[in-house]
Nucleic acid binder design. Structure first.
Length: 357
DNA sequence: AAACCGGGGTC
DNA sequence: GACCCAGGTTT
């Protein structure tokens, strides 16, 4: 076992020297703020998808103090389209913590880093090792996969016992004096060679001692137990306009898209056409007997989230006098760009069936 | 421990 | 359609 472990770390570092192919703007970066920002953006996000966001954030907010002082809505607009919006909110809170408690100087102790909002074990280990060369092994999707395959571990990774097992193993394997380069290597290796699908076992430098390769279980590892259920939801958006203004609100309930904005939402349990919506009790509760004119009805929009499929429809109506609608605010249509919206709404706004009344 | 949180890419 | 992505927080 010990021999396999030495073989593993040695070959991995060797592979990294020969194939340092994944270039990224934050590679070799030593500024903890920049490392932190990239790691937050890359949580559950592909490098190619997060890259442009990272560059925009760095250019807009070069330091933690800049981010701490930023206008919140502006930050959410910069994050718009990236998903998992709690990351953005937590990132702002952490930036303010760094600015106030640590006077703008990024903390350099693992426990302090781990205690920041939005930073968990993975991100703390990444910052600690990359920025401060502290001996903490990263454990992300790549590491789970590489370790489970090479060592032939079929313990489910999405359980408490599994996480501890893999975390302990990862920490034991870490060469303490090369934590930055080793952490970098194992994640690159998982992304380039030991990929989830169609891994390149034929040319893999670890093949000789890879348990899964010899047992023919590569495609079965890592093991997960939980299967997610996807529910369908039907969002009927009323875009009510009065003169050059429309009603929007910020989503604050514990639900998807927190801190993003939307139009007047009438959610139904099943698909509903515009006639049903406009004659429904939810609509009448808001608009009562107010006079309105239907100006446009959009095509159906569909968006796939991790746990939900959102079917949306947009109905434009024009009212002839302003109403007080609880929870909603009336804003100039021209100022829509100042607010962050979920993808399905920006898609609608950019489509031909948009707001042109 | 389980549920929840986006958007995009790949097969 | 299923799975995954430089995961973390809430319930």
């Amino acid at each position: 076992m010990q021999a396999a472990r030495l073989f593993f770390t040695e070959k991995l570092l060797e592979w990294n020297q020969e194939h340092n192919s994944r270039s990224m703007p934050w590679k070799g970066e030593k500024d903890p703020y920049r490392i932190w920002l990239s790691e937050i953006i890359l949580q559950q996000t592909r490098v190619e998808q997060g890259w442009p966001y990272y560059e925009r954030f760095i250019s807009q907010y070069p330091t933690a103090n800049d981010l701490a002082a930023a206008n919140e809505e502006e930050v959410f607009r910069l994050w718009q389209g990236l998903g998992y919006y709690a990351r953005c909110k937590n990132m702002l809170a952490a930036a303010r913590e760094i600015s106030q408690t640590y006077l703008g100087r990024f903390p350099d102790k693992y426990e302090q880093i781990n205690a920041l909002k939005g930073i968990g074990p993975y991100t703390a280990a990444a910052i600690a090792s990359f920025a401060f060369n502290l001996p903490y092994a990263v454990l992300d999707g790549n590491v789970f996969r590489v370790l489970s395959r090479f060592f032939g571990i079929d313990t489910p990774m999405d359980t408490t016992a599994g996480k501890k097992l893999f975390a302990d193993l990862a920490q034991e394997l870490l060469p303490k004096d090369k934590s930055a380069i080793y952490n970098q290597s194992i994640m690159d290796f998982g992304a380039v060679v030991c990929k989830p699908q169609l891994p390149e076992c034929d040319t893999c430098p670890l093949q000789k001692k890879c348990a899964a390769y010899h047992e023919g279980t590569v495609s079965l590892l890592p093991v997960k137990t939980k299967k997610l259920q996807i529910k369908k939801r039907y969002f009927n958006y009323i875009i009510a306009s009065w003169k050059d203004q429309i009603y929007i609100r910020k989503r604050t309930e514990s639900d998807i898209w927190q801190n993003l904005h939307e139009f007047i939402l009438l959610e139904t349990a099943a698909p509903a056409d515009s006639t049903q919506i406009l004659s429904g009790t939810d609509f009448q509760q808001i608009f009562g007997e107010a006079a309105y004119e239907t100006t446009r009805i959009s095509k159906p929009f569909k968006q796939q989230l991790t746990h939900q499929t959102i079917h949306s429809q947009f109905i434009n109506i024009a009212i002839d006098q302003p109403l007080e609608i609880p929870g909603y605010q009336l804003i100039p249509t021209a100022s829509l760009d100042n607010f962050a919206f979920p993808k399905t709404i920006t898609s609608f706004l950019q489509s031909k069936t948009g707001l042109l009344l």
